[in-house]
Amino acid sequence: MSARSTAGLRHRLAERGIDRGLLMLLPAVAFTVALFIYPFLYGIGLTVQPTAGMQEKWGGGIWANYIAFFSDPFVFDSVWITLRLALPAALFNVLAAIPVAFKLRGKFRGKRLLTTLLVLPITLGTVLTAQGLLIFAGRQGWLNTFLVQIGVLNEPAQFVNNYLGVFLSLVISGFPFSFLLISSYLSGIDPSLEAAATTLGASWFQRFRRIILPLLAPGLATTFILTFVLAFSVFPSARLVGDPTGSTRVMALMAYRSFGEQIDYPMASTIAIMMGVVELIVIAIVMLWRTTLYRGSTGGKG
């Protein structure tokens, strides 16, 4: 009797997709819960346990960290500084990658070499890019030497240790990434759609505007989100090639300052969590816009 009912239960569960095979998922889930979800919740808990010093300075009891975050201009301005850096960089990476990906689709000699070279910066890492930019684009670097010698500049220009330096480092690390993504989305669009449009007499601009762009737009949104995520958490380059006390005083730097230099874990967690919130707001806006776009088959292999 009891044996029959357990067999029945097991069978019924198996029909819904629950059986012992699911145990294979257990290590990954347990791991993610222990090392991601738990610390994350713990961090949120920390934000409402401000240090005595913070409570005294900002008041508000357990909300002192949040009050400090929103009313201390030194901290809160870093939100705008981060967005001013990450949004234009992500936008530039996506917009510049579209024509390049377009030109380089199809087969031609040396394509594999070119793709390989474009992947290279992904492995360079931000620290090496920073060191290279400091030497190459510094006041005495080759870039300035060349520009002065051909007479474009009268004296060496300031390319690093400011906003431009961090922007350049974000483009160098982010552009190859968005190029690869957009290339793969482009290859998913059926070429016969374009051929049909050509037969019907569409100009290249009409074909791009009416056929390619609507099909590509969801992929562009995804690419934008991913490059934005990369640019948003910029930290080493903001410190090394930027102006860490001024125009590139990003949120990640502020969070680390609280964590490593002031040893104020609750405030560091507050800035870190708010960083996630700001990022998710931007992603949500892009996703919202994405839902208004065409969804469905692009006719090709994608």
Binding site: G43, S233, S269, G276
Partner: peptide, 13 residues
């Protein structure tokens, strides 16, 4: 989620 966001609580733990 940016690494710093979960990295700081994780490092605290």
């Amino acid at each position: 989620i940016p690494p710093i966001t979960y990295g700081i609580p994780l490092a605290t733990v």
